[in-house]
Design a protein around this nucleic acid. Structure first.
Lengths: 212, 212
DNA sequence: CCATCCTGAACGAGCGTTCAGTCAGCGGGA
DNA sequence: TCCCGCTGACTGAACGCTCGTTCAGGATGG
């Protein structure tokens, strides 16, 4: 998580307790946000599910928006952590891109409710928090972009604009959490195959990456 | 627009007036929804921008949700109308798919704020309205699917699962309205090229559709 | 007994919604 | 021509409710 991320101010002193309570609050909030969204969830509901009184809740946050920030903090740190290890895979760019897509889809699968909230409620965030979100996204895109650029250099890929390609491919992975209701009859593996296939060979199929 | 779509009940009698007012309300609502979302927009604000008093507004709708329905009605009828004509293009499946993607992206460009509201606020809808939304989406997917299936039969494409491919490709088009802030430096044409290229040839590029 | 943490009733703001009242326009009777 | 009554659309203050937030007081443990 970026060191620049502002700490959520609290009244309580005990650092460990704060962390524990923040976890509780985040868990509880996520549950509700995923089902009803941010605005239709009341602070009272979050407090109850988190096994806290309303007053106690407000000693760990300064406002309701802080709860949304908590959720986003979790997204940020989670992605930071997971995507680094996923991208570290070695091999030729084609295999690397494939495993990056697979890792992203797996991540999106594990935290699909988080992704949903991310897309549905980001317009609620203040400019400051939005900037952070953009930052995380940009870093994620850069990782894909790096792979594509290397693939271009080594003759595996022929992407006109690696940045644009990275944005588009990364977005493509969001089909799994965002179109879940439409993909009910498919499982993660099938969708992953389809996405990887589309990215690597297009609809034409069966060409394989250029050097295969 | 499907005939089954429930009419929004009104107090006012004059049919033409109702239609005109509904347009006003929809225009006004869309303006606010796109900027702040449904829940953060008050009925008063919508009334004001629509040049109506709060009371007058409520003679044209029964509840705030009706306003969201108005917006969705517009999306539905718009898509119904536009996508039919776009899909009617003849030619080989490759060209047809390309022009379908281009048309979709153009549509998404024209109504990007609408699409944003669609993705951000759909969880607000009642089950009944959601079903309609799914229906429209399914019909849209079917059109893409039909093209892909023909392409498969005629040997242009090699999509394992045409339905899944259609869903994924259609979703891909949503990158333009949904990742707008991330694509600021690109214009519609560039993004369209990138999407079409990815769909037709994958990241490998320069293969062309199989029969080219 | 003090420091901490927790409780939940209370508060004020803002929301969606209603409704008693206003008003313009129209038609027909004098 | 004027008046009267009526219809249909509009007005905006008011209502009731829920929300986010606060705070005086209670509980706990060291």
């Amino acid at each position: 998580m970026p060191a620049t991320m502002r700490q959520i101010e609290t009244v309580v002193k005990d650092r460990a307790l704060i962390a524990r309570r923040h976890e509780q609050i985040c868990d509880s909030a996520l549950q509700h946000f995923a089902r009803k969204g941010y605005h239709q969830t009341s602070v009272r509901e979050i407090a109850e599910t988190a096994h806290l009184s309303v007053g106690a809740l407000y000693t760990y946050i300064k406002s309701k928006e802080d709860i949304l920030l908590l959720v986003y903090h979790r997204i940020f740190s989670l992605f930071q952590e997971k995507m680094s290890e996923a991208m570290a895979k070695s091999g030729d760019p084609a295999a690397q891109l494939k495993s990056a897509i697979e890792a992203t889809l797996r991540l999106y699968d594990d935290y699909h409710d988080l992704i949903l909230v991310l897309y549905q409620e980001s317009h609620t965030l203040r400019r400051e928090a939005l900037q952070q979100l953009f930052g995380v996204d940009r870093r994620y895109v850069s990782m894909f972009q790096a792979i594509i650029e290397r693939g271009n250099r080594e003759g595996h890929f022929a992407a006109q604009d690696p940045n644009l390609a990275a944005i588009v491919i990364l977005f493509l992975c969001a089909v799994w959490p965002l179109k879940r209701w439409n993909l009910k009859k498919y499982d993660l593996a099938t969708v992953t195959d389809s996405v990887v296939s589309l990215v690597s060979r297009g609809i034409g199929g069966s060409h394989g990456f250029r050097n295969n």
